[in-house]
Design a protein around this nucleic acid. Structure first.
Length: 211
DNA sequence: CCACGGATTTTCT
DNA sequence: GAAAATCCGTGGC
């Protein structure tokens, strides 16, 4: 995938400004299997230590340390025992904010993406944060990669910014706390955007849970 | 379309 | 020890 890279300064401003500005941009990942690129259609902002829903809320840990570093790097984490999700770190250094990449439309390497997600329908190829990572081939090794590096395997391209008239925002999905903050952003009318679901805490399987 | 339960293991308390 | 920024299959409407 050719095209100009977003400059690092792009990420050096408040996350709730960066997040909507990322809609329509293209994330490309080059591996031995080939290159897959997708156009971002849904994202969520997480504001470091101020945000109860953020992984950085309780301070620096081994998992979240990339968030505390330079803007423009990928923070990839493992969750639910089997899935990876990816964020792009925003500035300033030490503030530990980031944008979760929730969904995209595959615009290059769809055949490779389908190999990675053989049971997926076309619409669900990169619909959801863990599916997006699977389609792009993003896992543990991609944690900390600089997406603003022209020769790197994982790059963020300028693409075509989304039409501001089509950008919507609402509460973040699947998170506990700070539900009132409308920091989920998406492009209206995109098939790859997931339907909103309120967070439902999982009922514990073990006894002693209910009373 | 919606609701539910199971999968699976890292991470932090 | 429990929850987790999730996904998938199944079953109902």
């Amino acid at each position: 995938m050719n095209g100009a890279l977003l400059p690092r300064e792009f990420f050096d401003r408040p996350v709730d400004e960066v997040a909507p500005a990322l809609l329509g941009r293209v994330l490309a990942h080059r591996t031995a299997e080939g290159e897959v690129a997708l156009r971002l259609t849904e994202v969520e902002a997480y504001a470091g230590p101020l945000d109860p829903a953020s992984h950085a809320y309780r301070g620096r840990t081994r998992r979240n340390e990339v968030m505390f570093g330079e803007a423009g790097h990928a923070y990839v984490y493992f969750t639910y025992g089997m899935h990876f999700c990816a964020n792009l770190v925003c500035g300033p250094v030490g503030f530990a904010s980031g944008v979760l990449l929730r969904a995209g439309e595959v615009v290059e390497g769809a055949d490779t993406a389908r190999l990675r997600r053989p049971r997926s329908t076309e619409r669900d190829l990169a619909r959801g944060p863990a599916r997006l990572c699977q389609a792009l081939g993003i896992a543990r090794e991609e944690n900390g990669l600089d997406v603003c590096s022209p020769d790197g395997p994982l790059r963020i391209l300028t693409g075509e910014p989304a039409d501001p008239a089509l950008i919507r925002s609402g509460p973040r999905t699947g998170v506990n706390g700070a539900k009132e903050t409308p920091w989920r952003f998406w492009i209206e009318g995109e098939p790859s955007v997931s339907p909103y679901r309120a967070h439902v805490p999982r009922r514990r399987k073990t006894l002693s849970a209910d009373r």
